[in-house]
Design a protein around this nucleic acid. Structure first.
Lengths: 342, 342
DNA sequence: ACGTCTAAATGAACCGGTTCATAGTATGGT
DNA sequence: ACCATACTATGAACCGGTTCATTTAGACGT
């Protein structure tokens, strides 16, 4: 069974190939009787358009690329799933790569996507200040939407309000009397960790208290890092009375360390997770966590990108901020205020 | 800056377009001096091959599609990540869709992938007996590798030995004296749940004990299902003394129900998870779980598909089985044997 | 009946590669 | 000197659509 092509349809319908193409593209300059005749021929022959050939001339591939740090970030699948759903409903196919959080890979992927003539990209970048990445982003011929990054203002962005979330978390801890509040964050070269650090500072300043720089540990990128930093923090002379595990999926590493040290969550040390998870919810005691809607984030990202690709978006880049909330559970308890005398 | 094409390179190097193409394709019928001249011209002009144009004639798109039930299955990202890594190293780009576990979507996606001329597919199917899906699979022009499905023997497959895993889990429980062992599985129309049920039966038969059909609940597909079924099971006149939560990410739902009922894991009821997770590891008490290597599974799937696409694989379809192991933790305790007298 | 307009259909050029039949050039044998 | 035999380069056809300058036909006015 050989493939049916435009020419065969044209022949069957007794018209020119260009006419069939115009019918397929809903070009209004084709009369009704002819249109019907062509559509009948298409149905009769079971003709299907070849997307590759279509891309050849026009340039539109109906492909959208998505590149993020790492696909095994728990719950990030929700973002992908929802975005893919929206895109597919609009005839787009999703293309996936992981950047492994390396700028050179990000640049390389951007070039590869461009080579493949994708119609749009949604991605994260590991360092919002990297000149090569910024240049690659600026040079890209297709619209790029940044996921949870805010610095590169020439691109559309969907971001989470981590700053407020972190501030709520730290305020909560300060309100319970904690002062030695440790924080584990990822790389502050990217928005999420950067804004969480801001939120941490906001909360301290609002209370007139001074944040403690030595309790703020950044570049916590793997569960092993979280384990190690927690061990180190708890071994300090003045160990933290509360830990804010602000990175995406580092809660496990921290809990593992506390368990190793036989420190009880909510008793020996209070705990807040920077991202909600089943682990946070079902841990004993359940862990207070910052939450936001990843499904909505995925849908918004896809929708904004679709609008940009369709040329429906305003000229200026848009930035959508998703709210965070603090889900208070049982992992944080009050500490006695320090003995007076200072 | 206009795009550099083959013709420009040919002109710069003073050769024919066909010659440049042969250089690019490492065709041996081109003499060294010419090859060098062409390569210099390519470098000088910064020429890059257009994958779309390349696909036009040859048909190879260097695209591999992956379609699974749902991307928010925790830890499944590991499979995707590793597979993508291997594929990208070989010049392939991964294309992603979720089937939402519906046969008609599976058929539709298969047709869409074919239309896009992808070079290979790796996917799950929701019902290995569905005639439409089987027909679509047989009609596919590109190689398809099935993920954790074993019934359709005309395709390459990468499967997990859930049967042995489940048998180990149930043997462990039987060995602790449990008889009323409940099992929560997904849809037995697909291999994972089907083989887990087999393993469950294997273990009972090996002990000369009779499995209890009313404690075996299938079609548990969402955490809510798991919650509901656990509630129902624990409300029975003769409630189970152990629950084997055999579906992929249903552990949370089950634990939530037990917590609601104030039943303590490892005391009031023993628990085994059918798939390991951070939740299982860090729950209090830690939950005994069946584990396997998802990263290796992803790498194997990609490698097998690459071999098949390259025509390097043997004619017959291959099926690779990954081993499972039982990680014993503290969620299972012995029950007193029933009072003698029967 | 004739010119003018407009609407609709045509078909060839084009997108940017790959491939293959053909031609041209050395090399070696006699 | 001449033919056979590689070996190498050429360039046109081709993949399957889209697009646009051009042609054709029909309607209308006078």
């Amino acid at each position: 069974m050989v493939k049916v092509k435009l020419r065969d349809v044209a022949e069957a319908a007794g018209v020119a190939v260009g006419t069939v193409s115009r019918v397929l593209n809903r070009n209004p300059t084709v009369a009704d009787p002819i249109r019907r005749k062509v559509q009948d021929a298409i149905a009769a022959l079971g003709y299907e358009l070849d997307p590759v050939a279509q891309s050849m001339r026009g340039g539109r591939t109906r492909l959208v690329a998505c590149a993020i740090r790492d696909f095994d970030i728990p719950r990030f699948g929700i973002f992908i799933k929802e975005a893919e759903q929206v895109l597919r409903a609009h005839g787009y196919t999703l293309l996936l790569s992981s950047t492994t959080n390396r700028p050179e890979v990000e640049v390389e992927l951007l070039r590869a996507f461009e080579g493949r003539k994708v119609d749009g990209v949604m991605m994260t970048v590991s360092d919002e200040g990297d000149p090569d990445v910024i240049a690659a982003l600026a040079a890209a011929r297709m619209p790029v939407l940044l996921i949870d990054r805010d610095r590169i203002e020439s691109a559309d962005r969907v971001v989470v309000d981590h700053r407020t979330g972190a501030a709520l978390a730290v305020e909560h801890l300060l309100g319970l009397g904690h002062r030695r509040i440790a924080m584990l964050v990822g790389d502050t070269k990217a928005y999420p960790s950067r804004s969480r650090v801001q939120g941490y500072r906001d909360a301290f300043l609002a209370q007139g208290a001074a944040p403690m720089p030595h309790l703020l540990r950044d570049r916590v990128l793997t569960p092993e890092d979280a384990f190690r930093e927690t061990m180190a923090l708890m071994g300090l002379a003045g160990p933290p009375t509360a830990i804010f595990v602000a990175a995406m999926d580092m809660l496990g590493g921290c809990i593992r360390a506390l368990r190793t040290l036989h420190r009880e969550v909510g008793k020996d040390v209070s705990l807040v997770a920077g991202a909600d998870s089943e682990l946070a919810e079902l841990h004993a005691p359940p862990v207070t966590a910052i939450a936001w809607d990843l499904a909505e984030m995925g849908r918004h990202a896809a929708t904004m990108l679709l609008q940009r690709m369709a040329g429906e978006a305003a000229d200026a880049a848009r930035c959508l901020t998703l709210p965070t909330r603090l889900t208070i559970r049982q992992s944080c308890t009050a500490v006695a205020p320090p003995a007076a005398g200072g």
